[in-house]
Simulated scan of single mutants.
Amino acid sequence: MWLSHRDCAHLFDRCIQADYGYEIVYGISDNDRKYYSIERAKAVLDYEPVDNSADYTFEGEPKDEA
Rank of each mutant, 00 (worst) to 15 (best):
M1Y: 09
L3A: 02
S4A: 13
H5G: 11
H5P: 03
H5I: 15
R6L: 12
D7M: 03
D7Y: 00
D7W: 00
D7F: 00
A9H: 13
A9Y: 07
H10L: 11
L11I: 03
L11A: 03
F12T: 04
F12M: 14
R14Y: 06
I16M: 10
A18S: 08
A18R: 08
D19Q: 12
Y20G: 11
Y20T: 07
Y22T: 08
Y22M: 14
I24A: 08
I24F: 14
V25P: 00
V25C: 09
V25D: 02
Y26H: 14
Y26S: 08
Y26C: 11
G27Y: 03
I28C: 05
S29F: 01
S29V: 03
D32Q: 13
Y35G: 04
Y36E: 06
S37Y: 10
I38N: 00
E39P: 01
E39G: 06
E39R: 13
A43E: 15
V44R: 06
V44S: 05
V44E: 11
D46T: 07
D46R: 10
Y47T: 08
Y47F: 09
Y47V: 03
P49Y: 00
D51Y: 00
N52D: 15
N52Q: 07
N52I: 03
S53I: 12
D55V: 03
Y56F: 15
T57I: 08
F58V: 08
F58L: 15
E59H: 05
E59A: 14
G60F: 04
E61V: 12
E61S: 14
P62R: 01
P62E: 02
E65Y: 10
A66Q: 09
